[in-house]
Amino acid sequence: MVEKKKLQVEAINTGTVIDHIPAGQGVKILSQLQLLGTDSRITVGFNLPSQELGLKDIIKVENRLFNETEASEMGLFAPKATINVIENYAVRDKFKMSVPEKLDGVFECPNSNCITHNEPVQSSFTVKERNNNINLKCKYCEKSFSKDIVAGL
């Protein structure tokens, strides 16, 4: 008997698949992708069955190959997700996401009186994880914010 295997979200030729995202976090990652300025075609699946997580989200971005730095930025929202970089329907690279220690030049500091808003410097945050909450501390104004506030979610 031929095994019937059906993909939950259509396979892509070339691009990046972010899998094993805890259900609910996919929207945040999408929003993050827009922050990164992508105009690629994106296919998403929310609340798909997962052996490991119960329910998971999945995101496929066509014609865009993520590097490890971008993966670590995404790790803020789904530290246990995996990133598969696909070329010609085959996995070329696979990264496990993790919470980054530092994020430079990705987000603006939410403190409107922070010097980074009117001087020629990149924003820079150190990331601290405690009791499942992730906070970002601005290197310049030294204020701490939850990741959702920094990402504007």
Partner: peptide
């Protein structure tokens, strides 16, 4: 403004002493 002294320290050729940043 908060962070002004840290930013200044990155551009200064002499030690910066913060007398208060916001």
């Amino acid at each position: 403004q908060e962070g002004s002294a840290r930013m200044a320290s990155e551009f200064s050729s002499a030690p910066v002493i913060n007398g208060g940043d916001g």
